[in-house]
Each structure stands twice: as structure tokens, then as C-alpha cells.
């Protein structure tokens, strides 16, 4: 029996290794590229022969990339905060209340989530130019919010539905005002949901290329994914491969930090033990 169990374990370890290797291979590739010297860039080695930080120094030399990084962080954070706050309130209402038009609201948000963004790019371009928000932060924050709100509402309402309603009643009987009940009982229990949603929304905003390239024209609001497309080599005959690789590595770091910071909060099953089961 022990042998069978061990074989089982080895099998799992092997599968995991293969899957992780498969997933991390491109990451390693781009990281390796970013550390390569321009002269060895195309030598086909997966391990740089000459390690250099030249590419990183290069992208931080001009304001083009740093400005884009500030835009990215600012726009993604603001859009995430607004979407999560609005989404939390909307999801709580969807999960807990009966109100006229609830089905329409859910249907509408699903519709928005399903809508292909590419078809909205041209109208948005015109609308934003008329409104004067083209190539500004709000010009990106608003469409990001629009597309991430349905995601936030869906994820969060699932979390709110998991929280037993009896807890809220118990808090009320224990002497809590509705605000206290929400702050002291419901919010702590919904926290994993809120953080999960925040990460999903942040990643969505952070990764977006379509809106970023279509709704910006200068470094005023251009985010990193769009800015990378405008990278140039030191001469017109040189490909900016090294800089692109370095920039790609840099923009992955905030996501990793974000997930590492909140992964402890994203523990499922926090509500277990509230009620029997």
C-alpha cells in the first residue's frame, strides 16, 4: 500500500513539474533576453553568456517608459478601487435585496461582459474626442471600469451569497446598526472576495492593450503595454528586443507583488464554521 501511495505521489510531483516548467518557460526566456548583451541577443542561448543590466538602464534612461509606468499604475489602481467599491455595493444589493429591475441589472452587466471590446473602439474614440477626454487618464479609467464592473459584480455577489444571512440577523439582534453589521461582520467575511476581485480587475486593467493603444496618442496617458509598442532601437536598423524584454519583466513585477501581498487573504473557506455544515 505504501508503495502505491508513493508512486501516486511521484506521479503528482512529475505532473506538477511538467506543468510548471511549461508555464515558466516563456517567462524564463523573456527574462534571459532582458539580461543579454545586444551583441549576443540572437545567439539562441537560453542562458545569457554575458550578463548585463544595460537593457534596464536603457529603458529607464528616457522618461518614455517611466512616464508610461506611472500612467499604468495610476490608471489601473484608480479603476480597480472605483470598480471594487461600486462592485461591492452592487453585489451586496444583488445578493441580498429584492428590488425591481434586479434581473435587468444582472442581464445588463452580463451583456457588457460579453460585448466584444474591439467593436467599441471606434465609437469610444469619437466620443472621447468630442468629450475632450481622449488621451487622458479618465479616458482610460472609464472604459476599464465599465468592463471590469460586471466581473466585479459577478465575483463578489457569489461571495456575498456564501455568507449566511443569519449572521447579519444575529448582528442586528446583538445590537449592531446596519453599518456596524456590515463593517464588523459582513465586510471581514467578504474580504477574501474583495481582494480576489481587486486582483482580477487590476490584472485586467494592467494588461489591456486595445484601449490603451486606441484611446491615447501621447505619453500623457499611454500605459506600458502601449508604450512598449513605441520603443525604438538605438538606430533604425536595430530591433529594440532587449528593451522590450526588460520592460516586460518590469511590468510583471507589480502583479507578482500584488498577488503575493494578498494571497494570504484569498483563503477560501473562511466562512466555514459559521453555520452547521
Amino acid at each position: 500500500m505504501a508503495g502505491a501511495g508513493e508512486r501516486h505521489l511521484t506521479g503528482w510531483a512529475l505532473t506538477n513539474t511538467v506543468v510548471i516548467a511549461y508555464a515558466l518557460f516563456p517567462v524564463w526566456w523573456i527574462a534571459a533576453l532582458s539580461f543579454k548583451d545586444p551583441s549576443t541577443l540572437t545567439d539562441g542561448n537560453f542562458v545569457p553568456e554575458k550578463w548585463t543590466l544595460e537593457n534596464y538602464r536603457g529603458i529607464f534612461e528616457t522618461s518614455e517608459f517611466t512616464r508610461a509606468l506611472i500612467n499604468s499604475i495610476g490608471i489601473a489602481l484608480i479603476a480597480t478601487v472605483i470598480a471594487v467599491v461600486l462592485g461591492t455595493m452592487a453585489a451586496y444589493a444583488v445578493a441580498r435585496l429584492r428590488f425591481p429591475g434586479k434581473k435587468v441589472l444582472i442581464g445588463m452587466s452580463l451583456l457588457i461582459a460579453m460585448f466584444p471590446p474591439i467593436s467599441l473602439v471606434s465609437p469610444l474614440f469619437n466620443i472621447e474626442r468630442i468629450l475632450g477626454i481622449f488621451d487622458t487618464w479618465p479616458g482610460l479609467i472609464i472604459p476599464y471600469m465599465t468592463f471590469s464592473l460586471p466581473l466585479a459584480i459577478y465575483t463578489l455577489s457569489a461571495f456575498f451569497r456564501e455568507i449566511p444571512w443569519d449572521l447579519e440577523k444575529a448582528a442586528k439582534v446583538d445590537g449592531a446598526t446596519p453599518a456596524q453589521a456590515f463593517r464588523l461582520v459582513i465586510a471581514p467575511l467578504a474580504a477574501p472576495g474583495v481582494f480576489t476581485t481587486a486582483i482580477l480587475v487590476f490584472i485586467f486593467c494592467w494588461n489591456d492593450f486595445l484601449f490603451a493603444i486606441s484611446l491615447t496618442s501621447t505619453t500623457r496617458a499611454r500605459t506600458v503595454p502601449a508604450a512598449i509598442a513605441f520603443f525604438t532601437g538605438s538606430s533604425q536598423f536595430q530591433q529594440p528586443t532587449g528593451s522590450i524584454a526588460a520592460a516586460a519583466v518590469v511590468i510583471t513585477i507589480p502583479i507578482i507583488v500584488f498577488v503575493l501581498l494578498f494571497q494570504r487573504r484569498i483563503v477560501a473557506g473562511l466562512t466555514s464554521g459559521a453555520v452547521k455544515g
Binding site: 440577523k169 444575529a170 449592531a176 446598526t177 466555514s272 453555520v275
Partner: peptide, 28 residues
Amino acid sequence: APKDRDIAMVFQSYALYPHMTVRENMGF
């Protein structure tokens, strides 16, 4: 409101606050 009636209730599901210890639950 329930909070102004000074009554205590025991629920079928117990409705204990899962993020609080027994002590915090009872003292809430």
C-alpha cells in the same frame, strides 16, 4: 430596531461569527 429591543436570539444555524473566537463571539 432589533438592537433597541434588548432581546437575545439563538438561531437554528447558530449564526456564529466565523472570524471571531468564542470569546469574541460571546462578547460581541
